[in-house]
Design a protein around this nucleic acid. Structure first.
Lengths: 137, 137
DNA sequence: GCAAATTTGTAGCAATGGCTACATTTTGTA
DNA sequence: TACAAAATGTAGCCATTGCTACAAATTTGC
């Protein structure tokens, strides 16, 4: 149990892609929770300055995921909504799975936030299977 | 199962820290496998150019994790060895765990590479428990 | 309605991690 | 030994994500 082959071929998604997913997911959550999402809300949630949020939102708008106008609220495009939905599903599977194996909710939420970007479809399927959802071995 | 609190307080280790662990782990592996580790070996393993490797190694040397001299092999300092050992343990726990829930070895290695940096002690403990190693609920 | 507080934007700096192109050093071999 | 090949190093470019400081717009409250 320690043969390390060479499966390092771009194991992780690009960091920028992970950021996009995190922000899109956060925007969806905040919209649901408070009706609308502002730069300030994202800055608080991501624990970064509003400057960082603004710059990242520009890139996401450029990529067609986010829609917004200066000094206005932050919204998701259809494409952004789609990504948010997918991210949310992944997130929930990972959280539920971690809790199932005995991790506290707080830690599960915490760890899932980082792990969800690295769980492949195969791993997510295994988690769902373990949870008794859907597919079987 | 969708209450999203606000556990986003620096969920993930800094990316630079993850890089350090990945490299240190890789160096240890390569040394074991081929006797010595060269910049070229790391470039192949990490799938990046030798330039990127060189720059990262400079930073790691600066941080006291890596020891090396120009055009020479790459070695680990005692501190680097310590980090490598810890990383390896985490890696192996995650891989073994994923395989246990039905993920193929290839995918387990692949996903673990990214996930291991985001699994907290609590989650790792839960995985070990599930594997039947050590601690109990 | 207007001043103060809050929010957002912009300028500009730093660290990290990619790269290509080119210089230099080591190695290997004819 | 001398030259060619391989491995490293350096210069310099880009993108991403942090930041502080300062400017501008929007909201609030009196």
């Amino acid at each position: 149990m320690s043969n390390r082959p060479n499966p390092f071929v771009k194991t992780r998604r690009d960091h920028a892609d992970e950021t996009a997913e995190d922000y899109v997911e956060a925007i969806a959550d905040i919209e649901i929770a408070s009706g609308s999402c502002r730069v300030k809300d994202l800055a608080e949630r991501m624990q970064v300055s509003h400057v960082t949020v603004t710059r990242i939102l520009s890139r996401l708008a450029e990529a067609g995921l986010v829609a917004r106008q200066p000094y206005g609220p932050v919204g998701l495009t259809p494409q952004g909504l789609e990504m948010a939905a997918a991210s949310r599903v992944r997130h929930e599977v990972v959280v539920a799975f971690l809790e199932r194996i005995g991790v506290s909710n707080a830690t599960a939420e915490h760890d899932a936030e980082g792990m969800e970007h690295h769980a492949s479809e195969e791993t997510l399927a295994a988690m769902r299977r373990y949870l008794g959802l859907i597919e079987d071995a």
